[in-house]
Nucleic acid binder design. Structure first.
Lengths: 192, 192
DNA sequence: CACCGCATGACAGTGCCTGTCCTCGCGTAG
DNA sequence: CTACGCGAGGACAGGCACTGTCATGCGGTG
């Protein structure tokens, strides 16, 4: 055992989520988090850029997962099929950590600053998906639009999954969204 | 003339934009803005919830404009046609204030906090569009997806418009995006 | 054994944002 | 004309997020 307990970063993440759930994000000073983790405030800000970021530690891995799925998609897949594969991979990651994801999302949904941070993470994911599509030879404009559409589908499907208590699996909700999306320009489709 | 100069709010908006352009957002303390506007710091926070919000004063009107356009769209329009009409109306508002919009966007693009705020304004717009579509009888899922798709198109087209110095008008860029979006699920389209 | 690197601590300071009370011109009732 | 109260803004104190800077001491290395 070293001079300090190991995994300071992980302890901070856990303490933060616990406290954000117990008292709410705004009512939790950083000093409380570090106290529970047995560290100082200064150390918190060495590990996380700000008080929000501690809730988004996994966003980098999610991005890698999605980018990998786009790269691995069949060469004959359309851009939408490629990004659908990415969301499928993401769905797997979410469903594995069901209860944690739910808890985390309840904290985010309850606070505007956290919702802002979530949106910029999704925008970053969109950019990464667009890059991955361009690497497949998709042209710039189509790549960006497919990536934005995918993020839209993810927002809607994920929101529904959370709302209904995750009784239904996420993947079919994603598929349904992609299906409906294709009908939105069709006159007389059952959507309009 | 009253005890105070009129239009305190407008003076704050103008002083803030000027200073954000001159020095950058982060290098501009609120006290500098209020000094230039001839007011106190406390008054700034009576008019705007925070230092970011002063740049987004017009977002409410933009939302109303877009919602109005959706409501006014032909009853036979598809959901995508309805939201396209909304973006068309928005494009008009942007093009009228070309230089101001460009300046404002350069400030936003240079700062992560401001980009976050912009994203949550767009998310709010997406919600308003979805509500307006539901009022037309579009079902919940289709309404949300059409609204998200529209925001995606707006982001991409607006970004291109800014990048190229607004030499091309915005409206054709929007149309092009909607066109490309429809091809993304089609195998062998020139996008993939 | 001496040295160095690195994670953390200690502490001071800035700036955003809030709560609270005060000021004073203006419109209005009597 | 006076009295009153409302509303926009000022004054001031304080909390908390975040940063810069220097100190500390364990673990590995030569």
């Amino acid at each position: 055992m070293g001079r300090w307990e190991p995994n300071a970063r992980g302890r901070l993440e856990q303490a933060a989520l616990e406290l954000y759930v117990e008292r709410g994000y705004e009512q939790t000073p950083v000093a409380e988090i570090t106290k529970r983790a047995g560290l100082t405030e200064r150390t918190f800000f060495r590990h996380f850029a700000d008080k929000r970021e501690v809730l988004f530690a996994g966003s980098g891995r999610l991005e890698e997962l999605c980018v990998g799925a786009v790269a691995a998609a069949s060469p004959t897949a359309t851009p939408m099929e490629a990004v659908a594969a990415a969301l499928d991979a993401a769905a797997g990651a979410f469903e594995e950590r069901g209860e944690l994801v739910r808890l985390r999302q309840s904290v985010i949904d309850a606070n505007a600053e956290l919702r802002e941070r979530e949106l910029i993470k999704l925008a970053s994911l969109s950019g990464a998906l667009a890059d991955a599509l361009r690497d497949r030879g998709v042209d710039e404009l189509a790549a960006r639009l497919a990536a934005e559409a995918a993020i839209g589908v993810l927002k809607v499907a994920f929101g529904r999954w959370i709302d209904q208590g995750q009784e239904l699996p996420l993947r079919p909700l994603l598929s349904e969204c992609f299906d409906v999306l294709r009908t939105l320009s069709v006159r007389g489709a059952d959507a309009g």
